[in-house]
Design a protein around this nucleic acid. Sequence first.
DNA 1: TGATCAAAAATTGTATACGATCTAATTTGT
DNA 2: ACAAATTAGATCGTATACAATTTTTGATCA
Lengths: 245, 245
Amino acid sequence: MARSITAPDGFGAAATHETFQLPPGRTLDICLNLHNAILEHRLAPGMKLSEDEVGEIYGASRTVVRAALQALAHSGLVTIARNRGAFVSRPGIREAQEVFEARALIEPRIARLAAYAMKASDLKRLKKHMDAEHAALASGDKGKALALSGAFHIAIADIADQQVLSQMVRSLISRSSLIIALYWRRADTTCESHAHHALLKAFSEKDGPAAEEIQKSHIVDLHSGLDLREKQEPKSSLADALKPD
Amino acid sequence: MARSITAPDGFGAAATHETFQLPPGRTLDICLNLHNAILEHRLAPGMKLSEDEVGEIYGASRTVVRAALQALAHSGLVTIARNRGAFVSRPGIREAQEVFEARALIEPRIARLAAYAMKASDLKRLKKHMDAEHAALASGDKGKALALSGAFHIAIADIADQQVLSQMVRSLISRSSLIIALYWRRADTTCESHAHHALLKAFSEKDGPAAEEIQKSHIVDLHSGLDLREKQEPKSSLADALKPD
DNA sequence: TGATCAAAAATTGTATACGATCTAATTTGT
DNA sequence: ACAAATTAGATCGTATACAATTTTTGATCA
């Protein structure tokens, strides 16, 4: 039946079976497909993921869908509430801060390791990634551009050939996508490309320390593109909301 | 029926519901119980975890057990092979290296943050942790002592109040337990206590940089306690194994 | 005796059924 | 008309049944 659901359009496939530590199978297919949908902002934070509904879409029974949703829950993209079901996660401000602080700790190190491990073929792959990113941006597909931008970071981690750290980065970048969906305030996403270009230059020169430094600045810059001020909580009651007005 | 399976003996409960991102329920109970069993080396790496067998033990159906095993697979403690079932993970040498390198990157940072956030009550809790660790060691329960040693590191992460990094450390420490089960070569585990004592001193003085440095040395020291030389692979066939002898 | 193949047993993958819980719509009472 | 209570519907949690796959067993033959 429905096998190989995820459209394998070359890039964008930020997640693999290792991301979820699941054996190949329909559960994994659904996982990856939902994962991509969330990363490309086709599913908004907070959206309900009903087991029946998802199962209907993929032509699978609840058993399989449940497993997929639980796997996504473990990776932080989905939140499960007992007897209430699964929702696309809505990371709070606090979590957003921590995710980017963690990225600022881990990714620069990875960038340095990647610079040392970089081969000519790797460089070429990274360049192709960037081109795809530009193309998506030019065609106005913001969701895809963002997903590709994340895939660029993941590609670096893969080149560094550190599976443990790579896994962490994957998770952090997935969560970053949700955070950006919720808190991004900057109109231009072009800054992205500049940093990625600079990284590529450092990589081509096998300059580890430079790559590390650029990556750190890049993450800090991304972080600063978020509006993480405490939002006005929705008033607890309608009366409270209207009284002072 | 069987609810609250995990014996809540104060410490040792290194995992919470956040570790698995699961809502409270029987699945989580089984998760936590298996988690503890693995961390205390009551379940050896490579051991088969049959769904029926586990279900029998906890008086639960396969549905629930499967979910628990998959959650443990996501956290890396269990490996699932399609159509073959779940096994306690056997991390390889490469993974062992990477896990301790990741700890050396993350935990010192956490130690520094913890030093700044340390309150008197936190210090007292850490001291109690250490006492429990000593007691377990004195009573000869090596498995429990190791689990408590891990819990000490996790307690630090909790004090630092960084949930994202804390979650990562939890995962790394769980995997470290498997790695130690497979590759530990040192007889004395006392070095542990010295490092933990030194950390406590730095914490009590709110000396962040010192805590960071001590923690880094401590992790490197743990790493050096492993025998990660390439082992002779088991011969591909029995004939090959016996011929040269 | 040892290797090869076939059948049986055991184990996992998936679908479905039923009870429990939550959500909402409707009713009821003031 | 509004709030509280009740009922109906939808959704989740769990057990169980059957199909698919692997592993073990046992038979056959060189």
